[in-house]
Structures are given as structure tokens and as C-alpha cells.
């Protein structure tokens, strides 16, 4: 039975799983390619082999899109309170505090003014790292104020979304943020100020069912998950196999809800082109 017997010791069950060493290499979750961190950064956190767009936060998007030194943050320190006195496995107040300490962010969106190739804009960018980019009172209020700023200055509004949906820990108040941001956008539309929505991976639930889908232009990053109910929920509810590419940016564009898809490296130039076109 020598065929079935290992002649040499292979991986032992007790041998430690080797992770990629910290700080030098990163692994693409899509194609499993190992990428050198320097190269990865230079490539704007996109896999050079398969084009997978890694999730990045507000800080990196502001660096990527805005002219150097042009960003002026609005309402930076606005924080959630706990209107429902909510507690699940952890009290909401504690969850907020821990997340602030862990991420250095105050909530799931940062807003401000800045310039894109010298064009003044109002910008908001969500951070998925902050409780799944969930939308509660602070996200709603910051977007609402960014819209007021856009009305006042007549600067175009750009919001980059990355959100799992409304924040459960604020219950119906979170739900009302969908209404709040949408009514504010209805107000904005009366002033003929352009609003560009950029949907990144993932944009689902309350975010997609309000401001993220309401752009004069809806732009997505390649392969971003864009949905109302996420794929797991749909699969569970219907018991059916999901079609290939279901709820991915390309699929959503094919069904008519996205104007165009743009790779991260082209985002700034494409926005510049678009903003210039509608300006004159």
C-alpha cells in the first residue's frame, strides 16, 4: 500500500498557518495573488493582476481626488449619541467609543470642501470601517449640511458611498436619515447644483435606497456590490441560485442604474472631465 503512504513528511496538522508577513506583502482576496505593498500602494490599492479594487477609506480618497492641501473638513467632530439607549452584545455608546479609538474617525462619513483640478466641490466620503459604514444620525446630518453647503456655494456635490445600510442601533431614527438625505437632495435639485454619486464596494440597504442612487450621475467602481438587499438575504428569501455577476457594478449598469463604471486610477480625470462638461 505504499501508494497511499506518505514517504516524506508534508505539512503537519500542528504546523502553524503562515500568514503573509506584516508590512511587506498583501494578498488579493479575489485572485489570491501576492502583491508587494509598495506596488499595491502605487497602484491605488488595486490588484495589478486581476483589477480587484480593495476597499479604502475617506483619507485615501481625499488624497486621490483632491488637489493637495485643498481639503477643508466640515463638522469633523460631530458624534453619535445614543437616543434609544441601545445595547446588543455591547452598549451602543461603548461601540461608538471603541470604534472612534480604533479607527481615529468620528463616524462613518467625512465631509468638506476641496478642489478637483482646481474645480471647487463639496465632497463626502463614507468609511466602511466605522460600523460597516452604517448610516445613523451623524451620517444623515453631515450629508444634510454638505448639501446646504453646496446650495450656498453652488459647488457641485460629490458623495462616495461605502455602506452596509442604515444603523440598527438608532432604530427608526436611522431609517429617517433616508428620508432626510433624500428630501435635502430634492431641495438641492431645485438649485441646479450637480450631484455626483460614486458607489464603491459595497453600497447596499439604506444608502442605496436613498442618496447613493439619486445622483444626477451614478458612477461605480468596477465590481462594487450595489444592492438593496444583499446577496445572502436574496438567496435566503428566494432559495434560488443567483445569476452570475448579480448585484455587481457591471450587472447594475447593464440593468440601467449606473451611468458608467470607472477604475480608481481614472476617477479624478473622469470627474474633472464631467464637471467641466456641465460647467460649460
Amino acid at each position: 500500500m505504499a501508494w497511499f503512504k506518505r514517504s516524506t513528511d508534508n505539512i503537519k496538522s500542528d504546523s502553524l498557518k503562515k500568514d503573509t508577513p506584516d508590512g511587506i506583502w498583501t494578498k488579493c482576496p479575489d485572485c489570491n495573488d501576492v502583491i508587494h505593498k509598495k506596488q499595491w500602494e502605487a497602484n491605488l490599492y488595486v490588484c495589478s493582476k486581476c483589477g480587484y479594487h480593495f476597499r479604502i477609506g475617506s483619507e485615501k480618497y481625499f488624497q486621490l481626488l483632491l488637489d493637495e492641501g485643498s481639503f477643508r473638513e466640515l463638522d469633523r467632530k460631530m458624534k453619535s449619541i445614543d437616543p434609544l439607549n441601545f445595547s446588543d452584545t455591547k452598549p451602543y455608546v461603548k461601540r461608538i467609543e471603541d470604534t472612534i479609538n480604533k479607527t481615529g474617525l468620528y463616524d462613518a462619513i467625512r465631509t468638506g470642501t476641496g478642489k478637483i483640478n482646481n474645480i471647487d466641490i463639496v465632497i463626502g466620503c463614507m468609511d466602511f470601517d466605522f460600523i460597516g459604514g452604517s448610516m445613523g444620525s451623524v451620517v444623515g446630518e453631515k450629508i444634510s449640511r454638505a448639501i446646504d453647503k453646496a446650495i450656498k456655494t453652488k459647488y457641485p456635490l460629490i458623495i462616495l458611498s461605502s455602506s452596509g445600510g442604515a444603523r440598527m442601533m438608532e432604530g427608526a431614527i436611522s431609517l429617517m436619515q433616508l428620508a432626510k438625505t433624500s428630501t435635502q437632495l430634492a431641495k438641492l435639485s431645485q438649485y441646479k447644483v450637480p450631484y455626483i454619486s460614486i458607489l464603491t464596494n459595497p453600497t447596499t440597504g439604506g444608502a442605496s435606497a436613498s442618496y447613493a442612487m439619486l445622483g444626477d450621475f451614478n458612477i461605480a467602481e468596477p465590481n462594487a456590490l450595489i444592492a438593496f438587499a444583499g446577496p445572502r438575504v436574496v438567496k435566503q428569501a428566494t432559495g434560488k441560485d443567483l445569476p452570475p455577476g448579480f448585484q455587481r457594478a457591471e450587472f447594475v449598469q447593464e440593468h440601467g442604474f449606473i451611468d458608467f463604471i470607472v477604475e480608481r486610477k481614472d476617477l479624478k480625470s473622469k470627474l474633472t472631465q464631467l464637471l467641466n462638461l456641465i460647467k460649460d
Partner: peptide, 22 residues
């Protein structure tokens, strides 16, 4: 939360209503 509902833009349909009802 159906496949067809997602394909036909459930999120957009709701968002649009909020916007228009406002």
C-alpha cells in the same frame, strides 16, 4: 428581496419615491 426586484432596481425605486414625495 427577490432577484427580479434587485434587477429592476428596488433601491432606486425607493430612493426615487423619497426624493419625489419630498
Amino acid at each position: 428581496p427577490g432577484i427580479g426586484a434587485e434587477e429592476r432596481g428596488q433601491a432606486e425605486a425607493i430612493a426615487k419615491n423619497l426624493f419625489e414625495m419630498a
